[in-house]
Every structure is written in C-alpha cells, then in structure tokens.
Amino acid sequence: MKENKEEGNREDRIASIVLIVFSSVYLVYAFLIPMPVLKQQLGPSAFPRAVGFGMLILAGIYAWQQFRGGAKETETEEEIERRAAIIGAEEKIEKAADLKTMGFMLVAMIFYAFAFERLGYAITTFVVFMAGVLYLDRRHVLRDAVIALISSFVLYYIFTTFLRVQLPAGPLKLLGF
C-alpha cells in the first residue's frame, strides 16, 4: 500500500515537470506571435500570454506540492475521497495496468489512422477489428468475424449509398464498390 503511494507520488512528480515544460514552451510561442499590421488595443498574443503564465504558475504550485515531501495533507485521504464522491469527480483508475494490451491497442489505432485512406474504411476496419478480437478474446471468432464484416463492409455500403457520407474506398474502388 505504501509502495503504491510512493509510486503515485513519483508519477505526480514526473507529471508536474512535464506540465512546467509544456507551459514554458507554450509561453515562448505565445511571445513569438507576430504583431498584426493594424495596431490594436490588445494584440493577438495577449490572451495566450495570460493563459501561458497561468498554466506555468499552476504547474509550479503542483510541482511544489509534490517535491516538498508530498503535499502537506490538510485533509485525510478519506475526506478527500468523500468530497470527490460528493462532487462526482472522475473515478481514480487502477495503477496496475496491463501495459502490453494497451500498447497493442495503441499500435492498432495508429495503424487504423495510417491506413484509413490508403486501404479504405472497410478493409482497415475489418483488419483492426479482427486483430483486436484475436488479441483480446478468441473464444467466439466466427461470431465476431460476422460482426466485423457487418461493421466494416456492410456499414460502408450503408453510409456511402444511403446516408451519402463520404468514406474512403481504398483499393475497393478498383472493384467498382
């Protein structure tokens, strides 16, 4: 349990540094925004600068809370959780994540985006869907293959023919699909 907490604190520390770097880069770019030809009361860079400073200050406070030997708790863990429940805060997630599965799905998504126009909607969707099925759960491959066919090829047909939504055809165009 204690290890968990330290782990969380380490992640928080890394996050706070990432946020400081991000805010600084944003702020630098905000100062590099060119002035318009027409002089205005408030140029296009004023608002981004204010936002950038705000982010930098908050990221700084965040980092300070984390590095000062963990945030000085004004509330106990339990109190924080109770308040979080009352205001309906987003749920905390399990830290012990299955990184392999997540990595696989991330690669699948990147492939999906990469091939979306090149191979067309129908083929890419079918491939990604089946790859997901084969990786995640192979107990009902036949049933899932039918579902994959419907959500790729049949859906493509419905969208392009009935709903007039443009979707990339890919090589299917050669078949006059």
Binding site: Y112, Y121, V128, G132, V133, L136, F159
Partner: peptide
C-alpha cells in the same frame, strides 16, 4: 455484450465520427 467487443465498437465509431 462482451467488454472487448464494446471497446472495438468505440474505436470504430470514434474513427468514423472524427473522419467524417
């Protein structure tokens, strides 16, 4: 509905929606 199918559907609809 099995969770993994649901997740695959979410991925599909996300790509479909954002692309269109």
């Amino acid at each position: 509905v099995p969770l993994y199918l649901l997740m695959l559907f979410i991925i599909m609809f996300s790509f479909l929606g954002v692309y269109t």
